[in-house]
Simulated assay, not measured.
Amino acid sequence: MSRKIICLFDVDGTITKPRQPISPSIEKFLLETVRKEFDIAVVGGSDLNKIQEQLGTENLFEKYKYIFAENGLIAFKDGKALPSQSIQDMMGEDVLQDFINFVLRYISELNLPFKRGTFVEFRTGMMNISPTGRNCSKKEREQFYEYDSEHHVREKFIQALKKEFPDLALTYSIGGQISFDVFPIGWDKTYCLRHIQGYDEIHFFGDKTAEGGNDHEIYESDLTIGHRVTCPKDTVNQLNVLIALVKENREKELSVPLQCV
């Protein structure tokens, strides 16, 4: 019997360039080649609107078996919404405001090459914190990413938060170019796996798989077979290898003669 397989993709850096729309060639490959062999799904840390901006709104829920926004806190299967939870219910309003107030004070004291708007983006299952502000341009995103690679602004910010709030059961996860996510422990991308049922193998593809990256936990999970990728082109290459291996195994299964007992 052939094994039932689903391929689960991170969005930014895996099937799209950071915060950019999916290219027609990548989408065509996923829908016309990969989907013939496996079910496909996506999981992103961003909210649903941002995922729709990148993957398109037309027939989106028909293209992917599952769509997971905010690490799976917002989840859809075959276009139908699945149960969700909220970070404010978990943390409580008083603690949440103390946390946000500290974040804004910390950012106000940072000296960066530039600052724009939307430093804290409040989502259903997490907060997204950007020291430079999410309203920066594509060029500014790249500039900040280079600056952060040298000065480790986000890493230092996270260490300050851990020191200030040692008793909060929160995970801090760096993803993309300008921000990091904050969410309750266990609400990383492995959260989405509770919704995926009926498969022999879940193959996860992501680019931020190192410790501290927002693909790390799901990449390392015992429930997935992890694939570390560097860009959408690398994702395509690794998918071609996977498809070839699966076809080879199926051919071997078919070539085994039936034995009568």
Score class of each variant (00 low, 15 high):
residue 116 R to C: 08
residue 83 P to A: 04
residue 107 I to F: 09
residue 75 A to Y: 10
residue 94 D to I: 08
residue 109 E to P: 01
residue 88 Q to L: 08
residue 95 V to H: 07
residue 118 T to H: 09
residue 90 M to V: 06
residue 89 D to M: 13
residue 115 K to I: 09
residue 107 I to P: 04
residue 119 F to Q: 02
residue 83 P to R: 08
residue 112 L to T: 07
residue 76 F to I: 01
residue 78 D to E: 15
residue 101 N to Q: 14
residue 76 F to A: 02
residue 74 I to P: 03
residue 83 P to Y: 08
residue 122 F to Q: 08
residue 86 S to C: 05
residue 109 E to G: 14
residue 70 E to W: 09
residue 94 D to S: 08
residue 93 E to L: 09
residue 81 A to I: 15
residue 74 I to E: 14
residue 94 D to R: 07
residue 72 G to K: 09
residue 89 D to Y: 13
residue 90 M to K: 05
residue 120 V to M: 12
residue 123 R to E: 15
residue 85 Q to A: 12
residue 104 L to K: 09
residue 93 E to Q: 07
residue 122 F to N: 04
residue 102 F to V: 01
residue 104 L to G: 00
residue 73 L to F: 05
residue 94 D to G: 00
residue 69 A to H: 07
residue 123 R to L: 15
residue 75 A to C: 10
residue 110 L to T: 03
residue 107 I to V: 13
residue 102 F to T: 01
residue 105 R to Q: 11
residue 97 Q to H: 10
residue 85 Q to G: 01
residue 106 Y to H: 13
residue 87 I to L: 14
residue 96 L to M: 12
residue 76 F to R: 02
residue 104 L to Y: 06
residue 123 R to M: 15
residue 109 E to N: 15
residue 123 R to H: 14
residue 77 K to S: 07
residue 98 D to C: 08
residue 83 P to H: 09
residue 110 L to M: 12
residue 108 S to M: 02
residue 107 I to L: 05
residue 84 S to W: 09
residue 102 F to C: 01
residue 78 D to K: 11
residue 114 F to K: 03
residue 95 V to Y: 05
residue 118 T to Y: 11
residue 85 Q to I: 10
residue 74 I to H: 09
residue 121 E to R: 13
residue 87 I to A: 03
residue 102 F to D: 01
residue 93 E to F: 09
residue 91 M to T: 04
residue 68 F to M: 11
residue 88 Q to A: 00
residue 77 K to G: 01
residue 118 T to C: 05
residue 85 Q to S: 10
residue 103 V to G: 02
residue 107 I to Q: 08
residue 105 R to L: 11
residue 108 S to A: 11
residue 117 G to T: 10
residue 87 I to C: 03
residue 114 F to L: 05
residue 89 D to F: 13
residue 121 E to Y: 11
residue 77 K to Q: 13
residue 80 K to R: 15
residue 72 G to D: 07
residue 111 N to G: 01
residue 121 E to Q: 14
residue 108 S to W: 00
residue 72 G to H: 12
residue 114 F to Y: 14
residue 81 A to D: 06
residue 82 L to Q: 15
residue 71 N to M: 11
residue 84 S to E: 03
residue 69 A to Q: 05
residue 100 I to E: 13
residue 85 Q to Y: 07
residue 118 T to R: 09
residue 84 S to Y: 12
residue 71 N to T: 06
residue 102 F to S: 00
residue 71 N to G: 06
residue 78 D to R: 07
residue 103 V to D: 00
residue 122 F to A: 08
residue 98 D to I: 02
residue 92 G to S: 10
residue 74 I to W: 09
residue 122 F to Y: 12
residue 86 S to P: 00
residue 94 D to F: 04
residue 108 S to L: 01
residue 98 D to L: 12
residue 82 L to M: 15
residue 118 T to E: 10
residue 83 P to F: 08
residue 120 V to P: 11
residue 103 V to M: 05
